[in-house]
Design a protein around this nucleic acid. Sequence first.
DNA 1: AAGAACTCCTGTTGGC
DNA 2: TGCCAACAGGAGTTCT
Length: 294
Amino acid sequence: MPELPEVETVRRGLAPILVGHRFAAVEQRRKDLRFPLPAHFAKRLEGRGIEALDRRAKYLLARLDDGEVLVMHLGMSGRFKVDHANGAESAPGSFAQKAAEAPKHEHIVFHLDDGSAVRYTDARRFGYMDLIPADSLDTHPLFIGLGVEPLSKDFTPAWLAGKLKGKKTSIKAALFDQRLIAGLGNIYVCEALFRARISPFRSAGTIATKTGKATAKTIALVAGIKAVLEQAIEAGGSSLRDHARTDGTLGRFQHRFKVYGRTGKPCSRKGCGGTVARAVQNGRSSFYCPTCQR
DNA sequence: AAGAACTCCTGTTGGC
DNA sequence: TGCCAACAGGAGTTCT
């Protein structure tokens, strides 16, 4: 489910609940998600204060007051929901409380010291959580190979051209690769390629010159990636099935897709006249306009 | 060693 | 209407 804009939306929703507060109790309902949860997970969190909530790629990083970092990844179907202290859901005798059993896929509940709760639900269980010392984050296997943050100043046409030089794989697969650019997924790769008028099948190396210099295509692609991510964050991300903001409301960016999920619909580019197509690439759907994306 | 295929898991959907 | 293969926003591991 969640790509960079969805994770950033979740981060912004959780930050005011978590930062400056303490975990009073943690309910852990399974021993694993995608991977085993760390030993004594709940115990190690209880009593800890949260000093900051950051994002790196599609990871959320809660920095704790004992020098450890709670690392959280939402996988495909992970979702956080906040119950505010004294909110409707936590009111005594409320309907929610009467339904005593936990929802089927609610795996972890973080109770905060002010009575609020953060509930993690993940039907497919592709998400994961870990506790890692802050000073070993940079050398941890999960993070060591991660590529550039696409919204950072480091992500420029010159940088991208240098990386794509000589790459034989498709530009779609290259943008999907977290070791190159960290945070893009299927939706925003498709949308960015449409904006840059680049075919997802084009060999990645052809976006740059042979010597790794930026071209008009490189410039358009970097601009397209940054623009689509910024607009999606602004809209609270894209809600297809699972993503919702931490207050339960849906993101809105799905209404602004130009190609994703729009197979058979007319291309929205003025004067193009093409029809959006779908093709499977590396096992994932690519949506694109064969007429104006070259 | 790059690149593609397979894998984990459950829920939904679209085509017959 | 009902059934079931295909597919879903990810990414580590295993192949070729």
